[in-house]
Amino acid sequence: MKTCLIIDLMHESITPLLEEVGWKVDYRPTINRQEIIQSIHKYEGLIVRSKTAIDQEIIEKATKLKWIGRAGAGLDQLDVALLEEKNIAVLNAPEGNRDALGEHAITILLTLLNKVHTADREVRQAKWDREGNRGVELMGKTVGIIGYGFMGQAFARRLQGFGVQVLAYDKYKTAYGDAFAQEASLAQIFEQADILSLHVPLTDETHFMITHEFLQNFKKDIFFLNTARGKNVSLKTLSEALASGKLKGAALDVLENEKIGKLTTDQQYYFDQLINSDRVVFTPHVGGWTFESYEKINQTLVSKIKALD
């Protein structure tokens, strides 16, 4: 029987789902990198999250591997080019957590605009400040979305009913406008957006794509939402843009360095500026991380694995 190695924690449904489509499962969520290197030659399938980089060192040892499944959307921990060269199929599951991401993006955006984070904290401290927590309505605003894949589309869909204009820009698509977003150029987003939301993968092209110069292209001062990848924008850029007022506020589910106990000196300096600002809302990379998506990711992956046979 074909055997699949799983090297990260997964919803308990993964084993029976794989067995139903003819796969024997070796579930080893505590396996370390060296153990993966020593044993990967035995497996036809591999399922990962983001704990371990699947790079040349591992891929060269994976002599029987037919496919690798990423339990989630992002592929930045995988050497996709080498996997394709080796004719190893790369599967991911953005369909599994897009709904969770769409809802979370709305949640942190509304939290930011309505100052829910500061109001909650103050009331717990017996401070009743209505004027200081006056909110900003989403209605009537223009939301610019960069990246209109599964995640960008899920966010746009959930913006319906708020009375907003949604402009979507995706460099790698054509004719992608739909009932939820108008296809737009980057120049149109620069000109019209009140809110910018990122939904791009992490690639060489998108690494630190949001710079001071990029933000200066916006005609208006904007609110910024990032539920994509932390390294799309540096802590320094975020801090300085908030200080200058170019960013009126930021809702961040991801950070440049998410090992926040091991920041560099520079990163720590700018992170401290951000955490001391009431104009920033943080969540710990949980945008697509719900009880429901945990299981739906398995169902999505297994359906794609089955389709390979």
Rank of each mutant, 00 (worst) to 15 (best):
L17D: 07
I210P: 01
V143M: 08
I210L: 03
T52N: 11
G249S: 08
L18H: 11
A81M: 15
F150I: 01
T283N: 06
K259M: 14
L252M: 06
T227A: 11
A119H: 00
D272R: 11
G161S: 02
Y294C: 10
N276I: 06
G132E: 04
E60Q: 14
I305G: 06
R49I: 01
V123H: 06
Q56H: 15
S39Q: 12
I88C: 03
V116W: 05
E292W: 09
I37W: 00
T264I: 08
I195D: 05
S239E: 08
E95P: 10
T283F: 05
Q160K: 14
G288T: 01
E137W: 06
T283Y: 06
G249F: 05
K220H: 15
F224T: 00
H117V: 03
E191H: 15
L242S: 03
V80T: 15
M10D: 04
L301R: 04
I37G: 00
G140S: 08
F190H: 13
G69S: 14
K86G: 07
G69L: 10
R157G: 12
A187T: 15
K231Q: 13
T300M: 08
I210Y: 00
K219T: 15
L215F: 13
I189R: 01
K262W: 13
L198F: 00
K86P: 13
I305N: 03
T111L: 07
A126V: 13
G132T: 10
Y148T: 11
A100Q: 02
